[in-house]
């Protein structure tokens, strides 16, 4: 029952995050959804990732959102009509999820009783060390991209001085 509540709350938060008209509020709803996801992760037996999700997903990302919204400036909260007709959007999203569910859910594998003997650290640093190493590439690429996109350019500086 607890799980049901968590899931319902999580989906509710997510829905609010997507639906809300104010960006800051949406970011906060997203943080809420992220926190509840972290609880769900903990329930699924993944405490380490839950902690990371809590700090990164609910914390860092929210901070970044707030930063971005601050710099970009909140749009005036005019409710604009969706560019894709909303009913169509609902139908297609439901179809995609529904078909996926219809193919996957009835065949949901029975939970394996085997438990992995290895510790998280072992798996992370030994078995899947390549993924971890590649995160470095991802981070370098991301940092360079952000630097490149946000650097105050010469042209920009010129424009602002005018």
């Amino acid at each position: 029952m607890f799980d049901l509540l968590i899931v319902a709350a999580m989906l509710g938060c997510a829905f609010q995050a997507v639906r809300g008209t104010r960006l800051l509020i949406a970011a906060l709803w997203l943080a809420g959804a992220s926190a509840l996801t972290a609880i769900m992760m903990f329930r699924l037996g993944a405490p380490e990732v839950a902690v990371i999700e809590l700090s990164v997903g609910a914390g860092l990302v929210t901070v970044l959102f707030v930063f971005a919204i601050n710099i970009a400036g909140e749009e005036p909260p005019v409710t604009l009509r969706s560019l894709v007709p909303a009913p169509l959007a609902w139908i297609v999203a439901l179809c995609a999820v529904g078909l996926g569910a219809a193919m996957a859910l009835p065949n949901l594998r029975v939970e394996s009783s085997l438990l992995q003997a290895d510790k998280f650290a072992t798996v992370l640093w030994e078995h899947r060390s390549l993924d971890v190493l590649l995160q470095v590439v991802l981070i370098i690429g991301g940092v360079l991209a952000v630097l490149g996109l946000l650097a105050e350019g010469r042209a920009n500086a010129r424009k602002e001085s005018q």
């Binding site: 690429g141 991301g142 360079l144 490149g148």
Partner: peptide, 19 residues
Amino acid sequence: VWFEAMTVTSFLLVAFYRE
């Protein structure tokens, strides 16, 4: 992961003329 790394490294290259 390789695929994602390829994508991340190409973001800036696509939007290189950021002005």
